[in-house]
Amino acid sequence: MQNDIVVEDVRKSYGKVQALKGVSLQAEAGKILGLLGPNGAGKTTLIRILTTLLKPDSGRATIAGIDVAKHPMRIRSLIGLAGQYPAVDEMLTGRENLVMVGQLYHFSRKASKERAQELLEQFSLTDAADRTVKTYSGGMRRRLDLAASIVARPAVLFLDEPTTGLDPRTRNDLWEFIRQLVDDGTTLLLTTQQLEEADNLADWITVIDHGEVIAAGTSETLKSQLGQDVLELQISNRSYIPQVQTLLESIGRETPHVDTATGRFSVVVPHGTQSLLEAVRVLDQQSIAIADIALRRPTLDEVFLSITSASEN
């Protein structure tokens, strides 16, 4: 029995709106698949189909070899889901929420209580365990929601934009918890709008836009898909900006981006280090002092923007 998520040509429309126009993807067992895309790309629809909340119009999706549409009850025992907004009961305490979920997975009351205690400790919620969720902060709710999604130690876990609306510190804490889950052997499908999140967490990234997969790969391959490295360069004397811009235009593959306030340029270059050396040489010939120069891989943001704008054309 394999532990993968396999999606084959899944389609779903709401009336005339095609939310998914034939999506196919796979997630390897014990790994994190990042589903990356802007708002309305179809990420949530796909998660809802995989978690049995929604039936696809056509296509096939299996989790651990079990057909999602044909055996929803079996799938539900196998998966965990944390949606876009924490789905915890405000009027119950954190502990009561977890015990209730355990019992609804048909664990005994005793086992549910033990598991709740374990999770409260794992997610640093012991102090707040017996307070109603109403009194929790946003980060605590997320943690409780995440804890609720793994009560049954699911083999496959779905997190729909798990860190939306969290401050950077709370987000980093949550990332830590998410990494731990995968260390425990869970296969994770995670949706996000943030490239940084996908870059940080995911082993494999599928980019989806307008209901279609437009790119897939590791964060490294996606970056190299854009091809060339980015040359970053800063000059101390800003009066040379127009001159440097012209020079860099001849070296780079496109119009350089300039931050006129700082005199900082970035440009995609075709030949890596060679291009860097060339830039140093020509600027030296013109006696323009370089404050800082570096070659870097493109950020996922740049990759994403270039892929999504390509898919629109």
Binding site: Q26, I66, R74, R153, D184
Partner: peptide
């Protein structure tokens, strides 16, 4: 795609699930 068998005891193997 490489198939990795879950060996960690922490996750319940899918084969155990029945309707």
């Amino acid at each position: 795609m490489a198939q990795q068998v879950i060996t960690q005891s922490k996750v319940v193997p899918a084969a155990q699930y029945r309707d």
